[in-house]
Design a protein around this nucleic acid. Structure first.
Lengths: 198, 198
DNA sequence: TCTAAAACCGACTGAAAGTCGGTTTTTCTA
DNA sequence: TAGAAAAACCGACTTTCAGTCGGTTTTAGA
């Protein structure tokens, strides 16, 4: 038999949870609150998700999947390689809207969510970015070995630099310099990032 | 009045907690288990620590303080700057013994502890390493601006590369290359790291 | 020796995750 | 289209913990 209604419920719960987790944090949001908003019983929740953590996992999965799809679209867009690199990284980072609702993603108890997302994002993003970098190398714009490792490093330092929102101009300087050297780009290649930030 | 006995209890609880957190994880260790091992009552625990989280904080504090002291000693040791840099970073990283008991620090639910420690370590380590790097610059071995930011970046990539224990030879290549470029060292300056790892 | 602070006790509370046996709704098929 | 099975749902109940509280014992100093 089918199961379309179930999927709808799941999505509804995911949406409610998304909002609550973002405004109150994962630990501070109880399953009772979620089911109250959804107007369903406890048992129904646990019919759809076998635990609160599984819901979180599903939520993260959904967010990642959406982002990865976006990122893959950029892959085939006509755009200079450095720009493409940055576009993909930007797409995969936590969005301003998500951060604006409040800095929930970056505070105390949401470390768990942030780390979980980050780990997943990096894993998913590495192969995509590898393609772009390879492209850049064959064009002569980039030049490096150990592509996978360098791409991973690039993602890590982007995350470290930008995720917390309190980066300084010096941080950007170092970021640009490091990325250029990591990927073997000519000095200035990634200077345009500065414009995107302001 | 004094309070020596209290301090002893605190240390005892800290030690028990350390072991339990390491073997079972923070979330999975209940206060009840801690007090059972310590053979004290619930109230006594909460006489010494106002919450489970405060205990964790105290534990992290203790670990950090010890490491920072060690690191500061290295600061005044007679040693070439690149070696000193690496020695300090190594000292501040999670120790092999800590990792050996089992990889608890790197698994699922211990993200919280790991992240908390990492954040603190980086904050404490930046000023110390800045001194070393400045020393290296005045000796002409290193050459860079934005020291603080570059030191921070160095710590972040060390953590990302080595903390999880599953780094490859390519990861080390990229790490060495990146650090040398970050701090403006001549190629090969940090090659000796390879020996320390094997 | 008396007293006040320090250390300790353990039953109790409250909150939240997760369970379970049973009910209603939906969907397929004979 | 009846009726059976699967899907979806219900909510009271259980369990597990962190944290509380009023009271007791120990310790140390005056």
């Amino acid at each position: 038999m089918k199961g379309e209604k179930g999927e709808k419920r799941k999505q509804e719960l995911l949406q409610i949870a998304y909002r609550l987790f973002l405004t109150k944090g994962y630990e501070e949001t109880s399953v009772d609150e979620i089911i109250e908003e959804a107007k369903i019983a406890k048992g129904t929740f646990y019919y759809h998700f076998k635990s609160k953590e599984e819901l979180l996992e599903a939520l993260i999965n959904k967010m990642i999947t959406e982002k990865v799809e976006q990122a893959k679209k950029i892959l085939s867009a006509p755009m200079p390689t450095p720009m493409k690199t940055v576009a993909i990284i930007t797409t995969l980072r936590p969005e301003p809207t998500e951060m604006d609702i409040q800095n929930a993603l970056h505070e105390k108890e949401n470390v768990i969510i942030h780390e979980k997302i980050n780990k997943r994002v990096i894993d998913e993003a590495v192969p995509i970015l590898c393609e772009v970098v390879s492209e850049g190398i064959s064009q002569g714009i980039l030049k490096c070995d150990n592509i996978k490792e360098r791409v991973r490093m690039t993602l890590i330092i982007s995350s470290a630099t930008f995720d917390h929102g309190d980066f300084t101009s010096a941080d950007i300087d170092v970021f640009i310099d490091t990325v250029e050297k990591l990927l073997g780009a000519e000095k200035g290649t990634f200077e345009f990032i500065r414009q995107l930030i302001k």
